[in-house]
Amino acid sequence: MARNPYVGMWVTKDGRVRHELLPNGRYDEARGNRESAYRGRYEVQGSHIEYWDDTGFTADGDFVDADTLHHGGMILRRR
């Protein structure tokens, strides 16, 4: 699998949501004090990302630039 340019940690301004895109096509998202609140797989096509949570939930988002991700009504910045 080719490494995508968005692999790494993405965080909301208040630090409440911490979203890690792993190089193996998986993600791990923490919410508040709840580590690994959501886990699943993701795919990036261009600047768009699709998520499939291990529980069956789906979501998507868009990278505005190399350091900004809009996802689920939130703005996350690369850490």
Rank of each mutant, 00 (worst) to 15 (best):
M1H: 14
M1Y: 15
A2Q: 13
R3D: 15
R3A: 15
N4K: 04
N4L: 07
N4F: 06
P5L: 10
V7D: 13
G8T: 11
M9V: 11
W10H: 07
W10F: 10
V11P: 00
D14G: 01
D14Y: 01
D14Q: 00
G15K: 02
G15A: 04
R16F: 07
V17S: 01
R18V: 11
R18Q: 12
R18P: 05
H19I: 04
H19N: 06
E20I: 05
L21M: 13
L22V: 10
P23D: 11
G25T: 09
R26V: 03
R26T: 12
Y27C: 06
Y27W: 07
D28M: 07
D28A: 11
E29T: 04
A30G: 04
R31Y: 13
R31V: 11
N33Q: 06
N33R: 00
N33P: 01
E35M: 04
S36L: 10
S36Q: 12
S36T: 14
Y38F: 15
Y38H: 14
Y38E: 13
R39W: 04
R41S: 15
Y42N: 05
E43V: 13
V44E: 05
V44H: 04
Q45E: 06
G46W: 11
H48L: 01
I49T: 03
W52C: 10
D53R: 15
T55C: 12
G56V: 15
G56F: 15
T58A: 00
T58P: 00
D60T: 04
D60Q: 06
G61I: 02
D62T: 05
D62M: 02
D62Y: 03
D65A: 08
D65C: 09
D65G: 06
D67W: 05
L69W: 06
H70Q: 09
H71F: 05
H71T: 02
G73P: 00
G73V: 01
M74F: 01
M74W: 01
M74D: 04
M74H: 02
L76P: 06
R77I: 11
R77L: 10
R78K: 13
R78N: 08
R78W: 10
R78V: 13
R78D: 07
R79D: 14
